[in-house]
Amino acid sequence: MVGLLWSPLCFWVIFLLKSVVDVTWWEATAWTLPPMGVELVICFSTWYLCRMTSLNNWYLVKTIWTHIVAALFLNGIWLLLVMLYSNALDLVFKRETWGARFNEAVPVFLAVGLSLYFIAVLTHYLVLVVEKHRKAEEEVLKQSLLTSRAELKALKATVHPHFLFNSLNLLGPLMRTSTEKARAVVSQLSEFLLYSLRYGKQELVTVRDEVEHVENYLGIESVRLGERLQLRFDIDETILDAPILPLTLLPLVENAIKHGIGQCLDGGTLSIAIKNVPGSGNIHITITNPYEEPSRPVRGEGLGLRTLKQRIGAYYDGRGRLRSWKDEQTFNVELEFPKVKEVKNE
């Protein structure tokens, strides 16, 4: 491919030399081919320079200067090499053709070297731009795929057959011991399901919606776990109307119960704190719960967290973050994301 492009170029240079300097065809050919090989290497090496410099408007002048300096420098060296080569040819063939007439050929070599340099640079930039464009397109595609997959998982999670099953099983014994509590569970369960039905239509909900949703969930779980589940909410009232992705809190709280408090012999306190980050306009959520190293591997651990991380990554375009870590006896999740848009409630 390169050879195909390069050989007519070489021929053209030979032709130029022959017409400018009075030499025979083979003399011009011998003069041209090795230096053109070196030039090829130079042209390829500009690729790295192109990749390092930017075509961004801010740096355009700087980039142009860089290339001018580089072009002069590289071609200067090249000319020097060609001169040495010409003298060497004279010595080897015991004539006074190449070295002696080098001065006459300088304009040809200089013109060829500089123009090839700039053609190479332009080609490289073209390739880079196309590449960048293609990558950006790929990235967009990947993000949208990721988002829809995360959405699908979240949607599936809203169906909660396991939770529904457990909650219904609670009702049997509750109805005998305390109809009042049973009634409360039924109403919380129905609210919980209503949210699952409605959320799918909304891109964003309010922090208030999310908090109420987990309150319903936790209300039912505390009937099941009894004294073992203690709750501590610490929520900044001023952000109750702030926008948040639907089903952000539930997977975190679910994890805290399923893998945390539910696995602790004496239970513990689940703390949920939602705060403004001063200055940045971000929302900061911290959830901590006691944690006991499970006696055996627990399945499904981390799936909820991973899905949520993907959703947040995709939606906030890298400006949201979620991290989780285990201390000696607690499990912590920290979540921060910017407030975007206002929530349009239907």
């Binding site: 609670l170 049997g172 014994p173 011991t177 099941r224 009894g226």
Partner: peptide, 12 residues
């Protein structure tokens, strides 16, 4: 059983 209600239910 670790859940009081489940014990209650079985007892009943």
């Amino acid at each position: 059983d670790d859940e009081a209600l489940a014990r209650e239910s079985l007892k009943g």
